[in-house]
Write a protein that binds this DNA or RNA. Structure first.
Length: 302
DNA sequence: AATACACACAACCGCGACGGC
DNA sequence: TGCCGTCGCGGTTGTGTGTAT
């Protein structure tokens, strides 16, 4: 496992890119593609290291990059995905068409993280700083669910990346067949068996139903389904409803654990689908959300 | 008008993963 | 099997711009 010495070379330009350099890089990649980043700058006539060229291309010059500020919908999705994936910016950005991992990372570090901190939420754990949240370990099913969702998102990210190499971005459609096959494979079977009951990720179920679509699609597709009975129900009431379900299941059997985990995950993906981010402004409502992600709520039936 | 400070974003750095030899 | 080259990721830093004093 060797290290990349390319940037150690002296005589290579650093710092901000000029428009001339941008043009050279764009025209070279348009003509030749970007097979070998290391040799690209030399062949293109750029006094940059390959790493710098790759970064410039992937973060700024790529034609499918969406410029401009993040929409509330995108911010919402970043928060949701961060709750599941943590600081895996590449996996998160794969669910945001046209956004780079660097952009998502910057958005989180400059806006979302501060916003959560202001609200008394730990941006890493998505739990309140006060620490009332219990520290009981997550249930096995919960951990598995998170692992599977994480794996699925990564698989989607890879597939969308691969497909984008062969199709124009506007035509490429995220394909989750890989995950579905995995889910239906022996591995998936053993996973399900390992959860004793038929514990299926609601997200994956929805994915199977639609047979395509990214999480971002699902977020908007699922919400109306989940909230059909409560389409007019305010978000806080939905949270209260979930809490009620949790407290109700306190005395129930372990099979309810899966239900509440599903409920928690459903609610995780059941943010209001309009662009209303007002719930983020209201601490009481939002502190309920990290609880969805927290071990406490996942374990609430216990 | 000048300066200091804060913020946003682009770019860099170090590391790990992976594949080829 | 181990070494080397390459790539991608995440954390951090640097720089430009806007705002307050």
């Amino acid at each position: 496992m060797g290290k990349t010495p390319c940037c150690d070379q002296s005589g290579l330009k650093r710092g901000p890119w000029s428009t001339e350099e941008d043009q050279i890089l764009i025209s070279y990649i348009n003509d030749h593609g970007h097979g070998k980043w290391r040799s690209l700058p030399k062949q293109a006539g750029l006094l940059r290291c390959g790493k710098s060229c790759r970064l410039r291309w992937t973060n700024y010059l790529r034609p499918d990059i969406k410029r401009g500020p993040f929409t509330p919908e995108e911010e919402k999705l970043v928060i949701q995905l961060h709750g599941i994936l943590g600081n895996r910016w590449a996996a998160i950005s794969a669910q945001l068409p046209g956004r780079t991992d660097n952009e998502v990372k910057n958005l989180w570090n400059t806006h979302l993280k501060k916003r959560l901190i202001r609200m008394g939420i730990d941006p890493q754990t998505h739990e309140p700083f006060s620490g009332q949240a219990t520290k009981a370990p997550a249930s096995p099913s919960t951990r598995h669910m998170a692992q599977w969702e994480s794996a699925r998102l990564e698989a989607e990210a890879r597939l969308s990346k691969e497909s984008s190499l062969f199709h124009p971005p506007s035509l490429s459609k995220p394909d989750s067949d890989h995950f579905i096959r995995l889910w239906n494979s022996e591995v998936g079977e053993s996973f399900r068996r390992g959860n004793k009951t038929a514990c299926k990720s609601p997200i994956s179920q929805a994915t199977s139903l639609t047979n395509h679509g990214s999480v971002s699609d699902l977020t908007t597709e699922m919400a109306p389904v989940i909230t059909t009975s409560s389409s007019a129900t305010p978000f806080n009431e939905q949270i209260e409803d979930m809490e009620w379900k949790c407290s109700k299941s306190d005395s129930s059997s372990s099979s309810d654990l899966e239900d509440s985990s599903n409920t928690a995950l459903q609610l995780l993906f059941d943010f209001p689908v309009n662009n209303d981010m007002s719930f983020l402004e209201h601490i009481d409502h939002y502190t309920a959300f990290p609880a969805i992600m927290s071990e406490k709520s996942f374990n609430c039936p216990l």
